[in-house]
Design a protein around this nucleic acid. Structure first.
Lengths: 196, 196
DNA sequence: CGTCTATTTGAATGTACTCAAAAGCGGTGG
DNA sequence: CCACCGCTTTTGAGTACATTCAAATAGACG
């Protein structure tokens, strides 16, 4: 069954009966995106929170000079959106694009609000999702403040090996907040160590 | 009534009847901390999530060289803890100290777990608290990646004027991820502009 | 095969840090 | 009450980390 993954994702934190499952699935909008397509563009109202059934996505901020900062990557079994703009149904600040062909389930704001009322267990589910997201972001803040670019690079490689396989170094650099040129130097100096 | 502030804080997102209020208040442990005292020390199990009734607190990470990075400040009406370690009841990575004399309500993990079961509305309440915390941290990540120290400094001054009054520049520097010396230079160059 | 983009390399520059020393400020004890 | 002590803030010189710009090389894809 194609919905298997999202149901398993939810079953990690709450259990649903058959009717609840049917109702929940009825709210989802399934969509396939080809490689390098846009799922959310800055300025557009961010209508849905998105579950990745398969594929790889990237959320990034583009500043006035056009410089991109990657905020997060998402692979199968992850939730991704521009949370701030989703919650307030405002124009997105972030862009979300596919890196690989991706299969997404969209859950729209008004449907999520209904879901909270009809099946309050989902308050618990998303409380845990938000809690984990908060903890992850805070960890990233700590690392940004206390570690060098080189240390952050090696931690990223270790922590997200499945993601690393799918993405370019330019994208890793923009996640770490450094230039691709500097990341290249970090990698070169690492190789030098191997021969010293 | 002294609990007024915390009840108002909760009433922003959910409404409680009288019995629920009584039960909720029965779970809180009230405590006063003098200026410059330790509320949580790294290594110690992080047992409670804390509501600030009055005062000013700081959560910070101390690395192996002793360098401190401020993760967050909290003033009246804010919740603060080492979320990662609180959720997993593990030794704290962060330190939390008072900057001013502070009046705190502690809510322990086991009591919060009971609260979720007895009054499921609190799942909603903390879902919203976590959601807001996640959004704030993500915004900070975006700023750390895309802005200069000087820009981040001015945004901090604008965003948290009430906090700025209570804290030293050294503490602001450690929140921004720069040295106090460099913050001093930023401030000096700002003053120069005024006369140019 | 050719084109487009990613990656690497290098030189010059800028941003932020370290270390040291002086100046400012706040709290405490005599 | 004020003088001293300890900590914060400022200033400056020298240095390290990271960027910009340019150009060469390598890879990916139609």
């Amino acid at each position: 069954m194609i919905e298997n993954l999202i149901l398993k994702n939810i079953a990690k934190h709450i259990s649903l009966d058959e009717n609840e499952i049917i109702y929940f699935l009825s709210l989802l909008k399934e969509k396939k995106y080809p490689k390098k397509s846009i799922v959310l563009e800055e300025g557009e109202i961010c209508r849905s929170i998105n579950f990745v059934q398969s594929g790889t996505l990237r959320a990034f901020y583009r500043d006035s000079q056009g410089k991109e900062s990657t905020i997060m990557f998402a692979i199968a079994d992850w939730w991704i959106t521009d949370m701030s703009c989703f919650i307030n149904q405002q124009p997105a600040i972030l862009n979300i694009e596919t890196i690989e062909e991706s299969h997404i389930f969209h859950l729209q704001k008004e449907d999520l609000d209904d879901l909270y009322l009809k099946i309050p267990k989902f308050e618990r589910f998303f409380r845990i999702i938000m809690q984990n997201a908060y903890i992850r972001e805070q960890e990233r803040v700590i690392q940004n403040l206390s570690l060098s670019a080189e240390q952050r690079y090696h931690i990223f490689l270790k922590k997200y090996p499945q993601i690393v396989k799918q993405i370019t170094q330019k994208q890793i650099a923009s996640y770490l907040g450094i230039t691709p040129e500097f990341l290249s130097m970090i990698r070169a100096s690492k190789n030098k160590e191997l021969f010293s």
